[in-house]
């Protein structure tokens, strides 16, 4: 394609190529301590995510629901027993690179990409410290990330054994299209709770005032 595009300079690639993979390809050299991370957290993160990463105010909690046993097993038990009311970030995330990469590119939310490399290392360390994955005196660095990965509470929590990635993958749920006198129960198992009827506003205002149907006036209870 003559005269279309041009070769990127090294500096241009460096400016944008910020992704960090699970094998730490892309991870810049550097380090940051838990102590420094606490400073970063309290000044730049806690207002949204809570002092302990527990806040549900702007997003689901980041920290919580993981145990020392999970760190050993690499599988978060609360994901099976469902005792934790919400699934926190640390309960789910299998890879420490994911945290590093995401904080580096997107946090703090209103000033993404404003953290220094040290700050990203530090605050990542601090989050893992809050979750008791890393000790108080830990200094996270490109050198020891692989070791830290081995302590991620849900590092063994993922499977790619399913058919929803490959274009010709096999579906896990196999239904059958019965056409006549189909067996099995056809009972109503769940209905809209009354409390949810008008939560989205009056539906009569969310449909046309003409046509085959009208919107239901959900500010009133159902007529039956």
């Amino acid at each position: 394609y003559p005269n279309i595009g041009r070769v990127a300079t090294d500096k241009e690639v460096a400016a944008w190529d910020i992704d960090v993979r699970p094998d730490f390809k892309g991870l810049p050299k550097g380090s940051g301590s838990v102590t420094k991370g606490m400073e970063v957290w309290e000044s730049k993160c806690a207002s949204c995510h809570g002092t302990f990463g527990e806040s549900n105010e702007v997003f689901t909690p980041i920290v919580g629901g993981t145990t020392k046993e999970d760190v050993k097993a690499g599988k978060v038990a609360a994901l099976t027993d469902n005792k934790q009311p919400q699934r926190t970030t640390l309960m789910k995330v299998p890879t420490v690179s994911t945290l590093w990469d995401y904080i580096n590119r997107a946090m703090p939310w209103t000033a993404p990409k404003s953290l220094t490399t040290e700050e990203v290392y530090a605050v990542t360390a601090y989050i893992l410290n809050m979750a008791e994955v890393l000790p108080d005196d830990f200094v996270l660095s490109n050198e020891n990330m692989a070791e830290v990965q081995k302590r991620m509470p849900n590092r063994n929590g993922m499977t790619t054994n399913h058919g929803m990635w490959a274009l010709k993958g096999k579906a896990d749920v196999q239904s059958v299209a019965c056409m006549k006198d189909c067996k099995g129960e056809t009972k109503i198992r769940s209905e809209l709770p009354d409390s949810a009827r008008n939560v989205h506003g009056d539906l009569s205002q969310q449909n046309r005032s003409f046509g085959p149907v009208r919107g239901v006036d959900t500010s009133k209870p159902p007529s039956t």
């Binding site: 990127a8 300079t9 400016a15 993404p112």
Partner: peptide, 20 residues
């Protein structure tokens, strides 16, 4: 800018990449 270090629109992150 390409003749030098590169395009300023790449080297200096645009506002939409650094704000909400």
């Amino acid at each position: 800018s390409a003749a030098t270090d590169g395009d300023v629109n790449i080297l200096t992150l645009p506002e939409h990449s650094t704000t909400l």
